[in-house]
Structure formats: C-alpha cells, structure tokens
C-alpha cells in the first residue's frame, strides 16, 4: 500500500471516500428547495413595489415541495417522517422541516387573501428555509467540504441568487415597467457577483486549509466552467437586458435560466461528487520493532 512518496495510498477505506448515502434525491432537496426558498424571498421583496407575485409564490412552494418529496423518497422509513420534528434544539434538519409548514401555510394564506403581510411572511420563511439547508450541510462534520466555514455562505448565497434569477425569468411577464426589470437585473447581477466571490473564497479556503483530494478534484473540475457559464454568461446577458437592447426580455429570461442552472450544477457537485468523508489519520505511528515512533499519517488529503 505504500507509494514512492512514502505516503500510504488511500485504500481499504483508510483515506476519504465518496459518500453514497445521499444520492440525487437528497441533492434535489438542496437544489430545488434552495431555489424555491430564494424565489419566495425575492418574490416577497418584489411585492413591496406592487408586483403580482402569486405565480412566483406557487412556483417557490412547488420547488420546495418537490425537494421535500425527493427527500421523503430517500429516507429509509418514510412512514415515520413526522419524527423529523423531534429535535428542534440542535438539529438543522428538524428546523428545516419546521419552517416548511410555515412556508406553505403563509403561502396559501397569501394566495387566498392577497394580504401583503402573508406575502412578506412567506418570503421570510423562504429565506429561513434556505438558511436552514445551508446549516444542515455545515453541521455534517463527517464531510470536510461541507463543514468548512466558507461552505455555508456560498450555499446560502447560491440559493438566493437562484431565487432572484427565477424572478428575472418571470420579470418580463410580471413586471411591465422597464425600470423594474432593470432593477431586477441589477439585483441578480449583484447576487451573482456575491456568489462568485463566496465561491472563490470557499475554494481558496478549502485548498488553504486542506481537504480530501477527491473533494478538491471535484470542485476544481467545475471551477472554470461555473465561473464562465454559470456566472459570467448570465451576467453578460443581464447587462444586455439592462442596456435595453431589442432582445432585453429574452436576455433576462435566458440569463435567469442559465444562472439557476449554474447554481444547481454547483449544488449537485457539492452534495454528490465533492462529498468525501474525513478518512482516518493518526498523529503518531506506534512505537514497535525498532523502538521509535513514526510520523503522522493522513492519507488522501490535499491542499494546505
């Protein structure tokens, strides 16, 4: 098992390995739920200017519902799912689940009554949902790429960026004023900038602090394309929209869809491909044989 570098090869489950317990269904919850929560937050924001956001509320709740349904199909004992509400004190999964009824309750009341208070509450609960999801990953100490302190901000940021991007997709239909559409485009631009900065900060942090080689490989593999196609391309399209070119509306729609797709790609990569376990490490090889201790061993880690 030794290599020429003298380091042990990560074999026999000594080094980090890719997790296989959370598959596409769990990833879908972070993908759809994050976007849905972000959309509700920005729909509520847009409603402050009199925008008719009913369709956006329905879409946001549907996305969250799809995500939770995917998780329901993933858990081992789906008919015990209500047990998820038992640990509000420390579990962010419980808190995520606890926010969901408030999202749907206030959302339905907003749709039924048209009261702006309920619209705003739906947006606030949607934002809480995004935050809770980001904290779920951060609390999972067994996956170094998730527990890194710079992971939570980028997961939350992409949820909000995706939500705002879907608002941009809807803007040509629900915001007739050009000024309003420009404001949405400017907002999405700002959020994409924040997402890029947090993403780069996260990647730099992982490389600087050290992480499983598999995580670094998976995240580095999407870095360039995520920047170019997930952020720069929609940013250019948004600028086209802002500058009022003849194709402003299609540009906004396309920009929003591309930005959402970029975020979904990132989250899928994070939850599935980059999710490597901690692996094992020992600070001292035991004293045996020649009577001297050996150096520390930490196979399968890179960076730092």
């Amino acid at each position: 098992m030794s290599t020429k570098s003298g380091k042990p090869r990560p074999g026999d489950r000594v080094g980090p390995r890719q997790q296989h317990n959370w598959d596409w269904r769990a990833a879908s919850n972070f993908i759809a739920g994050g976007t849905g929560g972000g959309l509700l937050a920005f729909a509520a924001f847009a409603s402050l200017w009199g925008t008719d956001v009913r369709a956006l509320l329905v879409a946001g709740m549907a996305l969250i519902g799809i995500g939770l349904t995917c998780v329901w199909f993933e858990i081992g004992k789906p008919w015990r799912a209500l047990n998820v509400y038992r640990h509000l004190a420390t579990s962010w999964m419980t808190r995520e689940a606890a926010v969901a009824p408030f999202v749907f309750g206030s959302g339905v009341l907003a749709l039924a009554t048209g009261q702006s208070l309920f619209v705003l509450l739906t947006g606030i609960f949607g934002a809480c949902f995004v935050y809770a999801q980001a904290r779920i990953l951060a609390a999972d100490k067994g996956i170094p790429a998730w527990r890194h302190p710079r992971c939570m901000p980028v997961v939350a940021a992409t949820g909000f960026a995706e939500g705002a991007s879907l608002l941009a997709v809807a803007a040509p239909f629900v915001i007739p004023q050009v000024a309003g559409q420009i404001a949405v485009a400017a907002g999405v631009l700002a959020l994409l900038l924040v997402r890029v900065l947090l993403w780069r900060n996260y990647l730099r942090g992982l490389r600087g602090d050290g992480a499983p080689e598999g995580s670094l490989r998976a995240l580095s593999a999407i870095d360039g394309q995520f920047l170019k196609y997930g952020n720069l391309l929609p940013a250019i399209l948004l600028l086209v929209g802002v500058l009022g070119a003849p194709l402003a509306s299609p540009a906004l729609i396309l920009a929003g869809l591309v930005a959402v797709a970029g975020g979904w790609w990132f989250k899928y990569t994070l939850v599935r491909r980059a999710a490597y376990t901690q692996g094992f490490a020992i600070p001292h090889l035991p004293v045996r044989g020649r009577g001297t201790a050996g150096p520390a061993v930490k196979p399968g880690w890179g960076g730092a």
């Binding site: 997790q19 993933e74 081992g76 015990r80 998820v84 579990s91 999964m93 100490k141 067994g142 376990t277």
Partner: peptide, 22 residues
C-alpha cells in the same frame, strides 16, 4: 424504532462508523 433513516448522522460522523442497509 424512532430513526427514520435520513442518514444525516452518517454524514455527521467523522469516523465512518454508521451505516444504513435497506
């Protein structure tokens, strides 16, 4: 009898001590 098999604990354990068999 209470566990729902969500695997959140599997992700949280840095010692790969937990497993779920379906």
């Amino acid at each position: 009898d209470t566990c729902i098999g969500c695997a959140n604990c599997v992700m949280a354990c840095p010692y790969e001590a937990r497993s779920i068999v379906h």
